[in-house]
Design a protein around this nucleic acid. Structure first.
Lengths: 122, 122
DNA sequence: CAATTATTTAGCTTATTAGCTAAATAGATT
DNA sequence: AATCTATTTAGCTAATAAGCTAAATAATTG
């Protein structure tokens, strides 16, 4: 279960353009983008499973991308698994499910009137 | 429709403890917290419809809270409506619905195998 | 075991963010 | 019109984040 600090960390991680693009492409395969259909789909390819492959798609130095990936890992958005001397990056679908559920609950409670509704007139 | 920059702005806004607490309490009424059930519910009360009322619940100066609220407004997370000389703050449920949908799509596509699945073995 | 490949760590600089106080603005009340 | 209430803007400082290069680490290959 994600606590408040976990959630803040997740949002902080996704609130940066470079990390958001990495996240988006890792999760959607870089082809069909469910997160943002208005943006180009080719920022990063789906098969970019290692740090250097991802870095190729950016104009930033490798250590910079490495740091961004660490932040995504620390936020439990991705997982990193060392196989031989390469690191394989995978989406952490469990975290996304939990975040997804938070937003669903939040909006559903609103729809069903569970939550206090504001009265702007006073 | 939210584009990539909109989404990054939303995550940036929620990736800060103070703004997250304000968001959480404005959306959930501060009573039943769907965003984080493990945290105390009384950071801010639901009826905190104006800037100064929200500020009372923090140890920060009023202009600091005002700036945080502006950021939440700019990210379309809340709306602010001036009535007489007070500003009434409301949750922007439409934005949350859209974000909710993004995450739902993201996780559903994974579940249903629409997205390329990584092969860690190579 | 030297060289190569993949990645991280360290240490630095610059940009951004978050806080503050003081002053300005906007509207309501006396 | 003066005062009070609510909020924002301006301008400052300190902390954090994001970038860089160089060096370190880890595993593989020749």
């Amino acid at each position: 279960m994600l606590d408040m600090d976990d959630k803040i960390k997740i949002f902080k991680a996704l609130g940066n353009e470079t990390r958001f693009k990495i996240f988006k492409n890792i999760f959607t395969g870089g082809y069909a983008c469910s997160i943002d259909n208005t943006q180009p789909k080719d920022d990063i390819i789906a098969q970019a499973t290692c740090v250097s492959s991802i870095a190729e798609h950016f104009d930033f130095a490798l250590p910079t991308i490495s740091r961004h990936l660490k932040e995504l890992k620390d936020a439990k958005i991705i997982t990193m698994k060392k196989v031989k001397n390469k690191i394989y990056i995978e989406p952490n679908i469990e975290t996304m499910k939990e975040i997804s559920e938070c937003f669903t609950t939040l909006t559903n409670e609103f729809e069903t009137g569970v939550v206090y509704q504001y009265d702007n007139t006073k």
